Simulated scan of single mutants.
Amino acid sequence: MALVFWASVGLLVFVAILSLDIMGFFSRGNKFQLEGRTVILTGGSYGMGKELAKMLSQRGANLILVARDPKKLQDALDYAKSSAKNPGTQRFHYISADVSQESENTRLLAEATAWNNGRTPEIVWANAGASKPQLFIEASVETLRQQMDLNYWAAAYLAHKTMKAWLYPDTPYQQGATAEAPRHFIMTSSGAAFYSPAGYNPYGPAKCALRGLADGLRQEMLMYNGARRSNKKTSQAPAPFDIKVQIVFPGTIKSPGFETENQTKHQITHLIEAEDPVQTEVEAATAAMKGLESGKFMTQTNWLTELMRLSAISGSPRDNIVKDTVGQWITSIAWLFIGPDMDGRPWGYGKKEGMPEFKPEKV
């Protein structure tokens, strides 16, 4: 009887904690302060990026947008500027660059730093990316490389250069420098990082790699954050701020990019994702900002990417120990049913339609 009693007490406590957490009682304020700070946002000229730019502006950030098309950049900058929280003091700038090239990341960070009065921007968001869904064997090798360059290397290049600039600047930090607010390096991945269905193989592996980079880089930055608390004197003074690495996982977003994707998407991919939730650009951007403000390492923008995150969380930090642990158990069971259904769609399509005609991409 005693065992049953304590088990019941434990269950009630668990339910109470979970309920309070879901209702926001354990919230500890905004962990993504933006007012007066400078943000670099790549891929900020359209889609979710354009809406993110507006929301960053609304929160008082100085903004540097990066993309390739100057006209779209100017339009996006004007759109963001019109919503500025502090119109008289906020500053806005854009840089036209192809972030899939390493040298362009070097240039844009240098230009952004110069524009920011010689100070490396405090928040850098590698948001650039685009999907070109195709059957794997029909995609050209050139497309496979381009997808990896844009959807993984663009963020990796920028992270590599930003972290060095933050941690080992040309003018070294002084011992005992005044503490500053945390710096944030943010990456936009995709739900495809957790589950990449048939037809997304040019794109999905790059987003999986980005998730891996975020996991490893977050943990690596803990060493530098820990060095700030050390009493040991070294030749190199630590940065007077912590570095937070965060990653966002959008799902399907109804945007110009989505319409472009549908031009190359195979019918089987349409069948597999037929019931997927579709968000507007504003909805996805709002969810991303909410996750960052709550301090999440991983931010999913809809319920489907949340379920995929739970089932694939592995050793990544949990937003909530109770919710995420129980959610992982539940989704592991759910995949016993979801997985066969997902696999059955391409199997059934092939059985019904027969051998598909080979249509290699023309380069």
Results as ranks from 00 to 15, higher is better:
residue 19 S to E: 01
residue 24 G to T: 06
residue 30 N to S: 08
residue 34 L to F: 07
residue 39 V to L: 06
residue 47 G to C: 10
residue 57 S to N: 08
residue 63 L to F: 03
residue 65 L to P: 03
residue 65 L to F: 03
residue 66 V to K: 07
residue 67 A to K: 01
residue 70 P to K: 01
residue 74 Q to G: 11
residue 84 A to S: 12
residue 89 T to Y: 08
residue 91 R to H: 08
residue 93 H to D: 07
residue 95 I to F: 04
residue 98 D to K: 01
residue 98 D to Y: 05
residue 101 Q to T: 03
residue 105 N to L: 12
residue 107 R to E: 08
residue 109 L to A: 09
residue 112 A to Q: 06
residue 114 A to M: 12
residue 116 N to C: 12
residue 117 N to T: 05
residue 120 T to P: 02
residue 121 P to C: 11
residue 125 W to T: 08
residue 134 Q to H: 12
residue 135 L to I: 14
residue 138 E to S: 13
residue 141 V to I: 15
residue 144 L to Q: 08
residue 157 Y to P: 11
residue 160 H to K: 09
residue 162 T to V: 08
residue 162 T to Y: 03
residue 165 A to R: 02
residue 171 T to Q: 06
residue 173 Y to F: 09
residue 174 Q to V: 05
residue 183 R to M: 11
residue 187 M to Q: 01
residue 192 A to N: 10
residue 194 F to V: 09
residue 199 G to Y: 00
residue 201 N to A: 12
residue 203 Y to M: 11
residue 205 P to C: 11
residue 211 R to A: 14
residue 219 Q to Y: 08
residue 230 S to F: 05
residue 235 S to F: 00
residue 235 S to Q: 06
residue 236 Q to Y: 05
residue 239 A to Q: 01
residue 244 K to P: 02
residue 245 V to A: 07
residue 252 T to K: 06
residue 256 P to D: 03
residue 258 F to M: 11
residue 260 T to W: 02
residue 265 K to F: 07
residue 272 I to P: 07
residue 274 A to R: 05
residue 275 E to R: 06
residue 275 E to D: 11
residue 280 T to P: 09
residue 288 A to T: 13
residue 291 G to P: 09
residue 301 T to M: 04
residue 302 N to L: 10
residue 312 A to D: 08
residue 314 S to F: 06
residue 314 S to I: 03
residue 315 G to V: 13
residue 319 D to L: 04
residue 323 K to P: 11
residue 325 T to H: 09
residue 328 Q to N: 12
residue 334 A to P: 00
residue 334 A to C: 11
residue 341 D to H: 13
residue 342 M to A: 05
residue 342 M to N: 02
residue 349 Y to C: 01
residue 356 P to A: 08
residue 356 P to Y: 01
residue 357 E to Y: 10
